[in-house]
Design a binder for these strands. Structure first.
Lengths: 182, 182
DNA sequence: CCAATACAAGAACGATCATTCCAAAACTGT
DNA sequence: ACAGTTTTGGAATGATCGTTCTTGTATTGG
């Protein structure tokens, strides 16, 4: 999974995976139908092992906008300036590399994005207790906005040489969304 | 160039390029040192033929925030619902695919981003005529924010099934930045 | 202990890869 | 018209690719 995450699907060979995992070629093919099937399983595993532990706080019943910011800053805390460029996000990387060309992968990516949107939407709904609240449609649009903005953050981390602009982006994003809700 | 744009570097073979361009293999190698050199030239040509004609309006001396919005909506106007998922942006795609692994490509991507940031910065400076203006640092941060946000837009267009959420994102982005400047 | 079965390691396979090479065609100069 | 040079088209090359296959080892049951 790490190898797919850092290098992408096409640039990762089965040899690379055999070496990186220490698992024999025969065993891989015993367990998966082929490279693509293995990749789909890695996407699924990434969701369970990486996304869920991190995003769960946003999906909590009491999560606020600060929780979204904390989620982003926590993800960025894995990077410091000598760990850049970072691997980004496997799903985000995959959206770019394979999203246009593979239906099943597109669907997996889409499911991930819907999950993020729903999490953000719930937070926005809670945060929408103001004197002039936004409509549900407007909140939905803001949730989509957040989901797409976060995608930009991961893409940039693939090329970034310093982590501070990434952090600043997260803070600015949350600030702007906050001011939209007031 | 189109093939690299839609499929990425690693998923595009020299055979693909020979077929797509109608140029013989020998001619390609006569003009370029290899696949990577050809790709670097495509990045450069993309800058001249795609980015410059589109982004020039943002770099105009009288460009405003509406110009940034018009730039984004114009880029999106090439897509309608049966032309999705779109190719995204060659530079943005490359940032994700190759940015972490190739120094020269990283530098080309970085130069593109700096260009976008500078264009956005100038617009923001002009738009910053309010009763409580933002500092140059704050404007710089907003310009970086815009650059990274636009990256999210192109990545999403690689997976999108409808163009309206992409348009809405562009409008929301400009609205949020406007409200930050007031 | 032996035979049958299951599993692991990695060689082998045919296809595809990026690049080089070569023969034929086209062009240029005398 | 002819010889020399350049360009073109695509075959050839050696490496790498994803996948299958084979051999050796381990395990299980009689």
């Amino acid at each position: 999974m790490q190898r797919f995450w850092t290098h992408g699907y096409h640039a990762t060979s089965m040899d690379d995976l055999v070496k990186a995992t220490g698992v024999s070629r025969g065993s891989i093919y015993a367990d998966f139908e082929g490279k693509r099937d293995l990749f789909l399983c890695c996407l699924s595993r990434y969701q369970d092992e990486v996304v869920t532990p991190a995003f769960a706080q946003v999906e909590q019943a009491d999560a606020g906008l600060e929780t979204i910011e904390a989620y982003l800053l926590f993800q960025l805390s894995h990077l410091d300036d000598d760990r850049l460029p970072g691997p980004g996000c496997l799903v985000a990387n995959t959206m770019t590399e394979l999203g246009p060309h593979d239906r099943d992968i597109h669907d997996a990516v889409n499911a991930h994005n819907v999950r993020l949107q729903n999490g953000f939407y719930q937070v926005l709904k809670r945060a929408n207790k103001s004197t002039s609240p936004l409509s549900p449609d407007q909140l939905g649009e803001l949730a989509v906005f957040l989901t797409m903005s976060v995608q930009g953050l991961w893409s940039f981390s693939r090329s970034a040489e310093s982590v501070e602009p990434l952090r600043q982006y997260a803070r600015t994003l949350i600030d702007l969304v906050k001011s939209r809700l007031q």
